[in-house]
């Protein structure tokens, strides 16, 4: 008798309806409260509004960030100076560990390679594609195809790329990896792609670039669309070549956007761990900080070393923050 089939079906209907109801209520309630606040606040006197504006506009986000990110960040900082189960202080031991153990030095080296290559390649490719398709017919199809990986979860991406990189050592068994098959068809000797360092790190980076290029392209192409037509047309009339137009007009015009895209992708790359975790488990010298941090904290239950790695990650981002600060200051004074 088919018990296995029916019980879930019943619970399915039981949960889908409440799900949709909860969904509706949550959004309606949230927007309702905001509507009410605006109705009341707009009637308040200017003095009241001057105080109220901070409470309504700034306080909710600030409060959430305080408890959700700042407090954990401080906790992490403290834990990074403590031992595995956070019961006593150990000074800088965890940091010394991070910079002296050879495996962790490989982790740091890989993270550096990732954060250099991924933002440059994705942004570069995204920029090129955005430019090439800027005035093209049916650009939407092209752009959608390139954007598609953004819509795929890391779990899904891991499955997809398995069919590309997988390698069959036994010549008697069929090859189901695309890359190896192409190699065989070309009569080259396929390699065990995910095993050979540093090739494997580069191949993992390809997956991240594959995902991020769509992001860069979409944002940059939006920015390009906003370059006033008069400027490009003036350049056209002057007979400026395509390449010169690209370097002299397009890039300077959307420079600020490029910086934003580079920054966002860099931060995303520093935090990436799913790709490495699902594809190599951090083995074969492909490990990166974010994965090692997860493994130290939750696999090996060492909050001390895990936290120290997190702080190193945070410190690594500081130059990027400083650059952005200066960028913003510059723009503020220009206005």
């Amino acid at each position: 008798m088919n018990v296995a089939m029916m019980i879930p079906q019943r619970s399915l209907w039981d949960t889908v309806l409440p799900n949709l109801t909860i969904l509706g209520i949550a959004i309606a309630a949230f927007l309702g409260v905001i509507f009410l606040i605006f109705v009341l606040a707009e009637r308040a006197s200017n003095n009241v509004q001057n105080i109220l504006k901070y409470i309504v506009f700034l306080a909710p986000a600030a409060l959430l960030l305080l408890i959700g990110l700042i407090y954990p960040a401080i906790r992490t900082l403290i834990f990074s100076f403590m031992n595995a189960n956070s019961s006593e202080f150990v000074g800088f031991d965890n940091y010394t560990w991070a910079f002296t153990i050879p495996e962790i030095r490989i982790v740091l080296r890989n993270t550096l390679i990732w954060t250099l290559l991924v933002p440059i390649l994705s942004t570069g490719l995204g920029l090129a594609i955005a430019y090439m398709t800027d005035r093209m017919k049916r650009a939407a199809v092209i752009k959608s195809l390139i954007f598609m990986p953004m819509a795929i979860s890391f779990v899904g991406a891991g499955i997809i790329w398995r069919f590309v990189y997988t390698y069959e050592a036994n010549v008697n068994r069929p090859e189901i990896g695309l890359l190896s098959s192409i190699w065989r068809a070309m009569e080259w000797e396929p390699r065990n792609w995910l095993l050979e360092a540093p090739l494997n790190t580069l191949l993992l980076i390809v997956v991240m670039v594959w995902i991020q290029t769509g992001f860069a392209m979409v944002v940059l192409s939006a920015a390009m669309r906003n370059i006033p037509d008069e400027i490009t047309e003036a350049a056209l009339l002057d007979g400026t070549s395509n390449f010169r137009r690209f370097t002299r007009i397009t890039i300077p015009m959307i420079r600020a956007t490029i910086v934003v895209v580079l920054t966002t992708i860099t931060i995303g790359t520093l935090k990436v761990f799913d790709i490495v975790r699902t594809m190599t488990g951090g083995n074969f010298q492909t490990n990166v900080i974010a994965n090692e941090m997860y493994s130290q904290s939750f696999r090996q239950m060492n909050y001390g070393t895990g936290s120290a790695l997190a702080i190193i990650l945070f410190v690594a981002i500081i130059p990027i923050i400083i650059y952005n600060v200066r960028q913003l200051r510059l723009e503020r004074t220009e206005r």
Binding site: N170, R173, N192, F284
Partner: peptide, 24 residues
């Protein structure tokens, strides 16, 4: 074992498949 290095990239499930089809 054939290629030693690829033991590391063969999943433990696939590892046993060879005795089923007679390759090992």
């Amino acid at each position: 074992v054939g290629d030693v290095a690829s033991i590391a990239t063969t999943t433990f499930q696939e590892g046993g498949a060879g005795i089923v089809d007679g390759t090992c």
